[in-house]
Computed example of a mutant assay.
Amino acid sequence: MYTSMRMKIHREGRNILFFLILGLAVVNGSIYVFFHNHFVSISLLTISVIFYLLVLNFFRSPRRHFVGDTRNVIVAPADGTIVAVEEVMENEYLHEKRIQVSIFMTIFNVHANWFPVNGTVTHVSHQNGRFMAAYLPKSSTENERSTVVIKAENGQDILMRQIAGAMARRIVTYAEPGDECHIDEHMGFIKFGSRVDVFLPLDAEILVKLDDKTVGNMTQIARLRG
């Protein structure tokens, strides 16, 4: 169960949007004053408005609140499409087999990331890497990424990984070791196309399949065993 509230602009985009509209205003104003060509001016203005609205859409940040029993629930940490549900060996931190659930975000998705489970943050790290397409399987281990481990309320470790994509050049992670976290809270933000992986215990009940669409902080992707 969940509720969705009104939309706002994410704090990661406010400065970008301010300087972008300022720059577009200067460019359009200069073209209008110095070229005296209404066709060119109107065409550039139209393109500028469309471009600005696309960037504005990217930085939208819906206020969402999950309603219901959150005990042992794993919710989608991001909007997007399920591109992997498979058993893998997680070798960077857990060093054990896990079920990996991966969500790919296009530039048209909301790019805020939520905590997938209630608990306590026990580990946060950042790894430099490549910027290949985020939908590729090897992007999980070769791309630039941030790793967050949460000790869930049932005592199990849940690992979440933010992965940069071909266009993404900045991963923002708000989580800090020792933080108490809740699924309604933002864990971070990835700019311009990316992916989020969640590594779950092998006995978790998986509730999604390949190509399913997810809504961050709303879609239940798994349940932990009690």
Rank of each mutant, 00 (worst) to 15 (best):
P62M: 02
V85K: 08
H10S: 05
M5A: 03
K97H: 14
H10N: 06
V110M: 06
P77V: 06
S48T: 14
M105V: 10
V55K: 04
S43M: 14
R71M: 05
Y52K: 07
L17N: 07
M89I: 15
S41H: 10
I42P: 04
F58H: 03
R71K: 15
P77Y: 00
V26I: 11
F39R: 09
I31W: 08
E92L: 12
F39H: 08
T70M: 05
T106M: 04
G80R: 06
R71N: 12
F59I: 00
H111Q: 02
T81Y: 05
V55D: 03
F19M: 04
F39A: 12
V49F: 13
I103S: 03
I107T: 14
M89F: 15
F58R: 00
L44A: 12
R11D: 08
I47S: 04
S41N: 08
S30T: 15
R64T: 00
F35K: 11
N15A: 13
N28S: 06
Y32W: 13
F34W: 14
S41F: 09
K97Q: 14
F66I: 02
R6H: 15
V110P: 01
F19H: 07
L44M: 13
N37S: 08
I42T: 10
I42D: 03
H10G: 11
I47D: 08
V67R: 06
V75S: 00
A76F: 01
L45Q: 04
F34L: 14
S102H: 08
T81G: 03
M5W: 03
P62E: 04
I9L: 15
L44G: 10
F34G: 10
A25I: 09
I99S: 06
S4Q: 10
F108L: 13
F108K: 12
G23Q: 05
S43T: 15
A76H: 02
L53Y: 12
E12K: 05
F39G: 10
R64Q: 04
F18C: 11
Y32R: 09
A112Q: 06
G80M: 04
P62W: 00
N113A: 12
L24E: 02
V55I: 10
N72T: 02
F58G: 01
N15K: 09
K8Y: 13
A25C: 11
F19E: 01
N57C: 06
P77F: 06
F35R: 12
N109H: 05
H65A: 07
A112L: 15
V75Q: 02
F59G: 01
A84L: 11
V83C: 11
L45K: 02
N15E: 09
L56A: 03
Y32P: 01
H10A: 12
M5D: 04
L56D: 10
L17W: 09
N109G: 03
I31G: 14
I82E: 05
I50M: 13
F18Y: 15
H65S: 08
S48R: 13
S61V: 01
G68Y: 01
L17S: 03
S30Q: 08
V110C: 05
E92F: 06
V67E: 11
T81Q: 11
I31K: 12
P62C: 07
E86A: 14
I21G: 02
L54H: 09
Y93E: 12
M7L: 13
I16S: 14
F59M: 02
H111I: 00
M5Q: 03
V26Y: 07
P77S: 05
Y93W: 11
E86D: 15
N91H: 11
I50C: 14
S41Y: 05
A84F: 08
F108V: 13
I50Y: 09
V83I: 15
S30D: 00
T46R: 03
F51A: 14
